[in-house]
Design a protein around this nucleic acid. Structure first.
Lengths: 215, 215
DNA sequence: AAATTAAAAAATGTATACAAAATTTAACAT
DNA sequence: ATGTTAAATTTTGTATACATTTTTTAATTT
């Protein structure tokens, strides 16, 4: 779904603004206000709102108008559970097609992730790049797009993860373990690591949200 | 995602037209032509196209313009595999909440499905109604919406199913088995039946598509 | 004749303008 | 005071109009 529509920039901007909580959380979003803010007319705003609504960033508010889709432990749990099932699945399809070039690319991304002083957003982006570069090899666009959207939606929650202190460190260890298993062509082990990687992160996040929901 | 936007009717119509192959398959879709056909301006058409693109009915065609997302064995396989994992999952969450009222509703739908002389579209609608009425009890909107979209996309393929002669009969038997297991509160058995129900249908469909792709 | 380039046509993306709907405000009655 | 109704305002949805981009057509060159 990596379209190169003219309004792509606007789409990315608005999505980031939702991630960064720059939009009102509990009140409807006014098209005109966004249009003024971003210096465009309401038409491209409407296009982007429609898209973000479909992707789960926004939701219908009453009879008309949209608002930011609220964060919830339930949604987080659903997102992570779906990922837990679907990502090992796409990995199965990808494994036989993973050549040295792709594995090298994945390693490069991991090294970037090792750098200290990464912002949360940068960390999230690189994390997805790592997974995506492996998954794309599967040549399964339908499955891939679905997973990509789940990942995107999870990015609204990764701020909470960092509350857990050495989460990023553990995460990186698991990334390297995954890559090792892949290099050794151990499909079962690789899938197990990936599943654990996701389910562990999900459990920590959901537990945190259930206690400290910002509502 | 059951919005009640003004353009809802247009959205349903266009989706049905894609299902019924009333739109050109291999050439881009012209907004103006659709607008004239449906007697509206290009603006609501654009809204609907955007939505259908996000939901996987249409795809980007070149630098601009959209075309009907082609049917493929790979997509069908992805859709059914995802359903195979996600539907038993949501059923787990739904089971404890399934009361007699909902089970009664499900039974009513099954009886409607028993009627002969149903069109393929009617059959597909009722089939989804049956599953949806069970799944909705889970109160898992994120998971539910994802599954709902997968089902919708599968509806483009159900025409091929009917090629298999007594598919509908077998399908109904499995529906009743599922309902029995649910009434007996046998979660494991219910999930197994559901998983089989989906995977069997998927396998038959994919095998058929791999031999007789309409390309 | 084939390929390349330039002009024309068509289609999209966006802005403005208007109509319908929804929300808010204020007035009124209980 | 509180709840209800009606007017006013705001906001959305859609149509028309225009600018930009893309595609097609035709002309030109090799």
């Amino acid at each position: 779904m990596t379209d190169k529509q003219p309004s792509e920039a606007l789409y990315q901007q608005l999505k980031q603004d939702i991630r960064d909580n720059k939009l009102p959380l509990s009140s409807p979003i006014k098209q005109q206000q966004l249009a003024s803010n971003y210096g465009v007319s309401r038409i491209p705003i409407r296009d982007v709102l429609q898209r973000l609504k479909n992707e789960g960033w926004l939701m219908q508010s009453g009879k008309c108008g949209v608002m930011v889709h609220p964060l919830s432990a339930t949604e987080a749990e659903d997102l992570y559970i779906m990922r837990m099932y679907l990502e090992p699945l796409i990995l199965s399809h990808a494994m036989p097609k993973l050549n040295h070039q792709i594995l090298g690319q994945a390693t490069d991304i991991l090294e970037q992730l090792d750098q200290p002083k990464l912002s949360i957003a940068q960390h999230g982006d690189l994390n997805w790049q790592f997974h995506a570069c492996l998954y794309q090899a599967a040549k399964r666009p339908t499955l891939f797009n679905n997973i990509a959207n789940l990942h995107q939606l999870c990015s609204r929650y990764i701020g909470f993860h960092s509350v857990e202190l050495n989460y990023e460190k553990t995460s990186q260890q698991e990334h390297y373990q995954l890559l090792d298993a892949i290099k050794a062509k151990q499909l079962g082990r690789a899938k197990g690591i990936l599943k654990q990687h996701i389910s562990k992160a999900g459990e920590v996040l959901v537990a945190y949200l259930q206690k400290n929901m910002p509502v």
